[in-house]
């Protein structure tokens, strides 16, 4: 299944950041996002959660940012927000992300809460976006999509799309 969002005629891009992503840029973009959207407060908060987790995932795993700038965008389609990220990462990290998205996409809300709690109590690991992806999965109405495309040097292009209903 393709992770790239479909653009509807009435769609509006409410946020897009490109290039090497920094923590300061994520914070500034979060403030811009909260000021730009028109949605109930609870929905706005969920959008913030998904955006920050996705952006920090990109921040942590992006590689080759000069050649392949990371992109994070949020599109308002009228009924939903589509949150999309695209970045290069190591093939190992990309494959693990796809595996987590696939495994958790089948879980119920209760199952996602249980898995998240279990992961949170495990020792810290580096190189994996596991809990953040689980958090995104449980905040969305539809399963998260993840597509990976192999790149040279044992890297991969990762695209992740989440949809939040208003």
């Amino acid at each position: 299944m393709k992770a790239r969002p479909t653009m509807h005629p009435s769609s509006r891009v409410v946020l897009e950041i490109r290039g090497p992503v920094t923590q300061e840029e994520i914070a500034a973009a979060t403030s811009r996002l909260m000021a730009a959207i028109s949605a109930p407060r609870q929905v706005g908060h969920l959008l913030k959660i998904i955006f920050v987790e996705m952006a920090q995932n990109v921040l942590k795993h992006s590689k080759k940012t000069a050649a392949i700038p990371a992109i994070i965008s949020i599109t308002d389609t009228g009924e939903c927000f589509t949150i999309h990220s695209r970045n290069a990462a190591s093939f190992t990290a990309a494959s693990r992300a796809a595996e987590i998205v696939s495994d958790t996409g089948r879980l119920t809300r209760t199952g996602l809460i249980r898995v998240r709690r279990s992961e949170l109590h495990k020792p810290r690991r580096s190189g994996c976006a596991g809990i953040g992806l689980i958090e995104i999965q449980r905040k969305t109405a539809a399963p998260v999509l993840c597509e990976i495309t192999p790149l040279p040097d044992d890297d991969a292009l990762v695209e992740i799309t989440a949809t939040l209903r208003k």
């Binding site: 908060h45 913030k48 959660i49 920050v52 987790e53 920090q56 998240r116 949170l120 109590h121 810290r124 809990i131 953040g132 689980i134 958090e135």
Partner: peptide, 12 residues
């Protein structure tokens, strides 16, 4: 106002 998963783990 909000805490990310990394902060949740630290608070745990």
């Amino acid at each position: 106002d909000y805490l990310n998963t990394s902060s949740t783990k630290a608070l745990l």
